[in-house]
């Protein structure tokens, strides 16, 4: 049986990730995987609906807070805590999306930013969020009663499974009948309208799906790192995910993940170097955007003429 280039590359990546904890710290890998899923979820909107959200930290961080609170205060088991965080992100996505999609382009981006900032303020002030400290010491527990999330390697494989399922879901959405309509709306909204599509409903569905998966990433991260803080909901986080996605390649399924690994990798590699990390990452970002207009994966895909 001959495998398509995409399938074979996916299998290679999966094999590498399965072997990775023997070489790389699981903590680093888990962080990268959570951001990979976050960026991939964000890319569903930017790459396939043509919507630049500048408030995606609200879903990532919002889910992190809900998951952390559910696990710590209410004592929910990990799978339910993550599910709760994910559903909260979906509800938030529905509310924010319904407001934001009424506007286009820069106004859409600014609306999402403004709404996300409102949520940030709420988490800063609300009594249950721990203010500047965030929610710390979240109990990890056993996922599905089996996998001890306190064990780094076990936790890593759990995160890998969640991230893989998330990517699979995104791949399916992009390559579904709905995904076809979404791409049509992205390419030419007026034309899609003239074919009888109520484009706002498709944009809103995409927005909610994207928020949900971003929430899954945020909830997972809160649980395995035992912490939900303001860093997860502030606007820099929304910016970071844009950066990761652009770095890897907009509108490619694998691009955001590659961008996330690159970005998290650079950050941790530079952390001990004494160099000014944001400046170095900024320079790398500018270089990448200038050299690879389609992002790393997008550029490779274009050279090899395959859809990645």
């Amino acid at each position: 049986m001959r495998l398509s280039p995409l399938t074979s590359l996916t299998l290679v990546a999966l094999a590498l990730l399965l072997a990775a904890p023997w070489v790389v710290y699981p903590a680093f890998l888990m962080k990268a995987l959570c951001f990979a899923l976050f960026a991939a979820a964000f890319n569903l909107l930017l790459g396939y609906a043509g919507l630049l959200s500048f408030g995606h930290a609200a879903f990532f961080g919002g889910a992190a807070y809900v998951t952390a609170h559910a696990a710590k205060v209410w004592g929910w088991p990990p799978e339910l805590a993550i599910l709760g965080g994910t559903l909260a992100a979906a509800a938030l996505g529905l509310a924010m999306g319904a407001l934001a999609i009424r506007r286009q382009g820069i106004y859409f981006a600014m609306t999402t930013l403004a709404l996300a900032q409102m949520l940030f303020f709420l988490f800063l002030q609300a009594p249950f969020t721990g203010g500047e400290d965030g929610i710390q010491g979240v109990p990890q527990g056993r996922l599905l009663g089996l996998i001890d999330l306190g064990q780094p390697t076990d936790a890593y494989y759990a995160v890998l499974a969640i991230a893989a399922l998330g990517h699979l879901a995104l791949y399916r959405i992009v390559h579904s009948p709905f995904g076809q309509v979404l791409k049509a709306v992205r390419d030419n909204e007026a034309r899609a309208r003239s074919l009888g599509y109520e484009v706002d409903r498709y944009k809103l569905t995409a927005f909610v799906l994207s928020a949900t998966l971003a929430g899954l990433a945020g909830g997972t991260k809160a649980l395995v790192f035992q912490i939900a803080t303001l860093t997860d909901v502030q606007w820099q986080m929304s910016g970071e995910v844009v950066l990761m996605t652009l770095l890897g390649g907009i509108g490619t399924v694998a691009g955001p993940a590659v961008g996330a690994f690159l970005s998290v990798g650079l950050e941790s590699a530079l952390a001990t170097s004494g160099l000014p990390v944001p400046a170095v990452i900024g320079a790398v970002f500018i270089a990448c955007v200038l050299v690879f207009r389609r992002g790393l994966v997008g550029e490779i895909g274009a050279r090899l003429k395959i859809r990645l």
Binding site: I173, P177, Q180, L195
Partner: peptide, 24 residues
């Protein structure tokens, strides 16, 4: 796909995000 997206509008599957493209 351009033409198909117009045909798709009358199918119930236009909102199906969980089904593969091959259903088209």
């Amino acid at each position: 796909e351009n033409v198909r997206v117009a045909l798709q509008r009358r199918t119930p599957g236009r909102f199906h995000f969980w089904r593969p493209e091959s259903t088209l």
